[in-house]
Design a protein around this nucleic acid. Structure first.
Length: 477
RNA sequence: GGCGGCGUAGCCAAGUGGUAAGGCAGUGGACUGCAAAUCCACCAUGCAUCGGUUCAAAUCCGAUCGCCGCCUCCA
């Protein structure tokens, strides 16, 4: 598999440090508000990465942090802790806020079919690791303490800027400069901050009571659970600088070893061309979208564009994805259940179609997770499959087609088109009974009754379709 | 100002040197009691614009125009 590595700015053949093990760290959310579509795009994209790595046979350890302390609202060293601010607004304890929105986050991700990480470490639960890391950095001359604050000395790390392609001089000329007089260099960033009396989230440390800087947790926790060198580190494009750049400085400064072999960055969701973000206030919450579109539609919508391309949000786009999904689910429904025995072999034509689809699908996925291309192969499969079934609707054909669809669209892309099988089993049987009745009504040309039946079914979310030969089919919309 | 990205049909979106995937919408036909679904056919001589390199360019190079991201928190 080839992946685009932000560090080298090119696609590279992916090779883990110690196959078959793959250590992946993805920057998780700061849990102080419900997730929006931007989070959805990000974590669905990385979910496909994890699923595909596992499909390829790798033993993946997937770490995704939960930021519940240290992420400030404003300038890196002067703002207020986001969690604490929200806690005050909601009149709750900071840890209640963190738990509330952690649950909200996982609810949304579960709905989107995003697999849970193997470990979801909380920043607040890894303060000792972070303190140890700071100690190491001070010892190695990368950090210094001033009045209860510890700063990373950017000039002590020659590689600073290698990920984002910046030089220290460029940063200083254009950017707003912090007025923190404790810093030796304006671009030094805080590893540990002193906490005043008004601060709720604080811990004791060799430098007094305080709390860690935002960048620190990812270095500390990723190395805690994976090791000094990660195979893959991912996150949003907007985190390249300063967050990921600082992580590299912290981790490599402390260990002297390469931090991450591959850096992956997913692009942003935009609204009318502008980045969807909390600060602009132009975000749409996933829960709001789910009121109008099912999560699987949203997942398909996200996967229809490449993870490194921006996705411009629109209802029209979601409508389009919904129609596309209907095509997919209609085909899946036509294939029926998959638990029956294969009595015979599928036709040669079917076997060839499946072989071709799989080859094209995997080729697209191998090329930096090209999900739009992979989806195109799925829709080619649907057309080809429908054509075959129009001529030869044999159980063997249906079973193998259903198998490949499950493997590619289901397991790898996470599009569960079969629905929750167990809960649907009963209603499927009811549908069969109704369909049989409908056939008898049609045979006797009682069209008034059949039309009424179709309307009633439609009202509660079912579609009645009449097939050639007098049979009918009733399915959920 | 510095660094980076993008501009492909009505809409969305792949394609980074070999003659424009796929989806949505649309049109015509088959099928149908009427539908729906499905199938077949059609739907970009052209990929922001202008030059250049090449047997060959959406793809490489240069210029121009437009849009966006990062350089402050954001996936």
């Amino acid at each position: 598999m080839r992946l685009y590595n932000s560090l080298t700015r090119q696609k590279e053949e992916f090779e883990p440090l110690a196959p078959p093990y793959v250590g992946v760290y993805i920057c998780g959310p700061t849990v102080y508000s419900p997730s929006h579509l931007g989070h959805g795009k990000s974590y669905v994209s990385f979910d496909v990465l994890i699923r595909y790595l596992r499909y390829l046979g790798y033993n993946v350890r997937y770490i995704q942090n939960i930021t519940d302390v240290g992420h400030l609202t404003d300038d890196a060293d002067a703002g207020e802790d986001k969690i604490e601010k929200q806690a005050r607004l909601e009149k709750l304890e900071p840890m209640q806020i963190a738990e509330k929105y952690t649950k909200s986050y996982f609810d949304d991700m579960d709905a989107l079919g995003v697999l849970r990480p193997d470990v979801s470490p909380r920043a607040s639960g890894h303060i000792p690791e972070q303190i140890e890391l700071i100690k190491k950095l001070i010892k190695r001359g990368h950090a210094y303490e001033v009045d209860g604050y510890v700063y990373y000395s950017v000039s002590s790390f020659p590689g600073y800027g290698k990920l984002s392609g910046r030089k220290l001089d460029d940063l200083m000329s254009g950017a707003r400069v912090s007025v923190d007089e404790r810093k030796r260099n304006p671009k030094d960033f805080a590893l540990w901050k002193q906490a005043g009396d008004d601060h709720i989230l604080k811990w004791n440390s060799p430098w007094g009571w305080g709390y860690p800087g935002w960048h620190l947790e990812c270095s500390a926790m990723s190395m805690r659970y994976i090791g000094n060198t990660l195979d893959i580190h991912g996150g949003g494009l907007d985190n390249i600088f300063p967050h990921h750049e600082s992580e590299i400085a912290q981790s490599e400064g402390a260990t002297g070893k390469p931090f991450a072999r591959v850096w992956l960055h997913n692009n942003m969701v935009t609204v009318d061309g502008q980045k969807m973000g909390k600060s602009l206030g132009n975000f749409t919450l996933l829960k709001e979208i789910f009121e109008k579109f099912s999560p699987i539609v949203v997942r398909l919508y996200i996967l229809r564009s490449h993870y490194r391309s921006p996705l411009d949000f629109s209802d029209k786009g979601l409508e389009s994805a919904k129609s596309a999904l209907e095509r997919l689910t209609a085909f899946r429904a036509r294939l029926g259940r998959t638990d029956s025995e294969i009595a015979e072999k599928p036709s040669e034509e079917t076997a060839a179609l499946i072989k071709r689809t799989k080859a094209v699908f995997l080729e697209f996925m191998d090329d930096d997770l090209n999900t739009p291309g992979a989806l195109a192969s799925i829709f080619d499969l649907i057309r080809g499959g429908n054509t075959i079934l129009d001529k030869d609707d044999s159980p063997a054909n249906r079973i193998v087609l259903s198998g490949i669809l499950e493997e590619l669209a289901g397991t790898i892309l996470g599009l569960d088109t079969a629905g929750s099988a167990s809960s649907e089993a009963n209603s499927m049987e009811l549908c069969e009974i109704l369909a049989e009745t409908r056939g008898i009504l049609r045979e006797n040309r009682l069209f008034e009754a059949t039309d009424r039946m179709r309307e009633s079914l439609n009202r509660i979310g079912y579609i009645a379709r009449d097939l050639p030969g007098g049979k009918s089919k009733i399915t959920r919309k």
